[in-house]
């Protein structure tokens, strides 16, 4: 997947066939992180903590329902993905990129949780049970990188350290 054109309102991307399959596969996994993963506080000393936590989980669940509907609508939208002779083209608005980044990071973090939260550079032993989580984590990370690069970001290099 690569950015082929960008204006203020639209980002046009080119996808290969296999990339399109992976795009659908990963987005259909959403949501992958359980709402209870999010905690309002590490300490939790307030008497209203449990109620606040419940409200947070309700808010997260509601937002995910809305995101899930939006994802499914995007994937089913007629004409959204246009096949050409050599590739598949589709466009996203800046707002769509923003919520897709949220969606993709949910899948990425959910995949990481499913793998047992390995540390950086630690490769877990892969088996038939956790392989889908590895796919979710790696592929969503790839698509996140493409979207972030399209927005003008780049991964810091050692030369960026100050």
């Amino acid at each position: 997947m690569k950015l082929i054109r960008k204006t203020k309102e639209q980002f046009a991307f080119s996808l290969g066939q296999r990339e399109k399959q992976l795009w659908f596969q990963v987005l259909q996994m959403y949501p992958l992180v359980p709402p209870s993963h999010h905690q309002l506080s590490k300490k939790g000393k307030r008497s209203s903590q449990h109620e606040d936590q419940r409200l947070l989980e309700d808010a997260v669940a509601e937002q995910r329902r809305a995101n899930r509907q939006q994802v499914l609508a995007m994937l089913a939208e007629p004409g959204r993905f246009r096949e050409t002779k050599n590739d598949i083209r589709f466009s996203l608005t800046p707002a769509e990129i923003e919520w897709l980044l949220q969606v993709l990071n949910d899948v990425r973090v959910g995949g990481w949780l499913g793998l047992g939260e390995p540390e950086e550079l630690e490769t877990p032993e892969i088996n038939s049970t956790n392989a889908p989580y590895l796919l979710a984590m790696e592929v969503s990370g790839f698509f996140q990188s493409v979207l972030l690069t399209a927005l003008g970001h780049h991964e810091p290099t050692p030369f960026d350290e100050s």
Partner: peptide, 30 residues
């Protein structure tokens, strides 16, 4: 820190949520 999050993603989120400059967002990301 969650080691799974891309550094550039964290920088982007800080810029978006707080309206920070890239330099300030990268400082906190690091």
């Amino acid at each position: 820190n969650d080691p799974v999050n891309l550094m550039v993603y964290v920088t982007h989120v800080f810029q978006t949520v707080f309206g920070w400059s890239r330099q300030k967002a990268e400082f906190h990301m690091k």
